[in-house]
């Protein structure tokens, strides 16, 4: 094994298994939206640690700033006002890569090793291998990757893989003043979430629950939601995300079948030539006309 602190178990555009003998602990970030105060310390910490700077934008009447994820903003507080639950509620959700167990970006990526998955569950982009095709954007069920206008590469949250590899927690976790963000083993995070959910139910949020969508094999970023029955209230968090059937068909069955069919078509031509043989205009036919 190469000397590396995180084991790569899956890489994009690679048809044979990556080394997966060593089993490390699956990690997870738990985002408790019920504790979030929308201070955006996590946004700042993310840019600080990753040496990114967002452009100064324009206020469009919302606390949400910037208005969307960008190649510089890998996490974003999304603010939503809703009256759907009988009272005005201000819902704040920290958006960013969910680190799916079955990542659509990795499935769609055509460049070997541009997207990799570590055995601890983190999905990371290796931009030096990125070709800028944007297939990851089509593959992602959460609309996360962003192409940089500066270098044409795709960027997203790394779950601070560089920090995690040396035993530190992600920068956003470190900065959260209310412990709405916690990080640890996925098992511990689920346990912690269940305590929080029980507490919320006691306080009258009977639909409180954990968001760890099974359609993508579960995620390594999870939410505690007060309205787990209506995740779309939180600025369109998908109800049951999964890799699009179109992407699944394209990168699943069609890719090997079509490639094989093309090879067989050429082979059929060769076999026809060596059995039936070429269709020649005979010399007698040439003379006939003369």
């Amino acid at each position: 094994m190469a000397l590396q602190s995180l084991d790569i178990v899956r890489r994009s555009a690679t048809t044979t298994p990556s080394p997966q003998q060593r089993q490390t602990t699956e990690v997870a970030k738990l985002i408790d939206v019920t504790k979030c105060i929308g201070c955006k310390a996590c946004q700042s910490a993310c840019q600080e640690w990753n040496d990114l700077r967002e452009e100064v934008g324009i206020n469009e009447g919302s606390y949400q700033n910037p208005h969307d994820l960008t190649a510089n903003s890998w996490t974003l507080m999304r603010f939503t006002e809703t009256e759907e639950n009988g009272t005005l509620e201000w819902l704040i959700r920290k958006d960013g890569c969910m680190h799916c167990a079955d990542p659509g970006c990795l499935k769609a990526c055509p460049s070997p090793g541009a997207i990799i998955q570590y055995s601890n569950g983190i999905v990371d982009f290796h931009e030096e291998n990125c070709i800028g095709c944007g297939y990851c954007i089509a593959g992602c069920p959460f609309d996360i990757p962003r192409l940089s206008p500066k270098d044409g590469k795709a960027y997203k949250c790394t779950l601070c893989s560089d920090r995690v590899s040396v035993g530190l927690e992600p920068a956003c976790i470190k900065s959260c003043p209310t412990q709405a963000l916690v990080f640890g083993s996925k098992e511990d995070m689920i346990e912690h979430a269940n305590e929080r959910i029980a507490d919320l139910k006691e306080r009258g949020f009977e639909n409180a629950g954990l968001y760890d969508p099974p359609g993508v094999g579960g995620t390594h970023v999870m939410y505690v939601l007060h309205h787990a029955d209506k995740p779309q209230l939180y600025d369109g968090l998908p109800q049951s995300p999964r890799i699009s059937g179109l992407v699944g068909l394209w990168k699943g069955i069609f890719k090997p079948l079509a490639t094989a069919a093309l090879a067989l078509t050429a082979l059929a031509g060769f076999f026809h030539y060596v059995t039936v043989g070429p269709n020649e205009t005979g010399e007698d036919e040439e003379e006939e006309k003369a």
Partner: peptide, 29 residues
């Protein structure tokens, strides 16, 4: 997403067609 799939599908049909086209040119002397 639909365009990505259709692009791959149309290209597959087209390349298969051109393989036949090239072979026919070699086959019919």
């Amino acid at each position: 997403r639909l365009a990505l799939l259709l692009h791959a599908f149309c290209a597959f049909i087209m390349i298969a067609g051109i393989i036949v086209h090239v072979y026919a040119a070699l086959w019919i002397k």
